[in-house]
Simulated assay, not measured.
Amino acid sequence: MANRRQILRYNLTPYQGNKRVFGEFDCHNCDNAWSSAFSYADTWQMCEVCNMEIYPHRQYPLLRGKNNSKKPHQSHLCGKCQELGHNCSKYK
């Protein structure tokens, strides 16, 4: 029988490494979908439509030199930014 003090931890995302990856998100509450180059293991992003915390359903390695996004990182919706206490786009 397992120790009662043992905390069970489930993987909340497909990727379980410690690097930043590309993630695809689908909000099951309002059907909003988005992608982000700031996705991390077991870290949510908030849906900007209904404010639900959503974990990515797919994650891929970043392709270096393919950052064509002109949209600034929305740190107020990012679980990693909330965890760090600052914008994770500056996180190394």
Rank of each mutant, 00 (worst) to 15 (best):
R4M: 09
R4L: 11
R4V: 13
R5T: 06
Q6M: 12
I7P: 00
I7C: 06
L8P: 08
R9F: 05
Y10A: 06
Y10N: 03
N11E: 04
G17L: 13
G17M: 03
G17I: 01
N18E: 14
N18H: 15
N18Y: 04
R20Q: 09
V21M: 12
F22C: 05
F22N: 08
F22L: 00
G23P: 01
E24H: 09
E24C: 11
D26E: 11
C27L: 08
C27S: 02
H28V: 10
H28K: 07
N29T: 12
C30T: 13
D31V: 07
N32A: 06
N32D: 09
A33Q: 07
A33F: 12
A37H: 04
S39D: 04
Y40E: 02
T43N: 00
T43F: 01
W44M: 00
W44R: 02
W44I: 01
W44F: 15
M46A: 10
M46G: 08
N51S: 14
M52K: 14
E53L: 03
I54N: 01
H57F: 15
H57C: 12
Y60Q: 06
Y60R: 02
Y60M: 05
P61H: 03
L62C: 04
L63K: 14
L63I: 13
R64V: 11
R64S: 09
R64M: 03
G65R: 05
G65T: 10
N67M: 14
N68T: 15
N68P: 00
S69D: 12
K70G: 15
K70W: 12
K70P: 08
K71N: 10
P72T: 05
P72H: 06
S75L: 10
S75M: 14
H76P: 08
H76V: 07
H76L: 10
H76K: 07
L77Y: 15
L77V: 07
L77C: 01
C78R: 05
G79P: 02
G79D: 05
K80E: 11
C81F: 11
L84N: 00
G85S: 09
H86F: 14
C88Y: 06
S89I: 13
S89W: 01
K90V: 12
K90C: 09
Y91M: 07
K92E: 00
K92H: 12
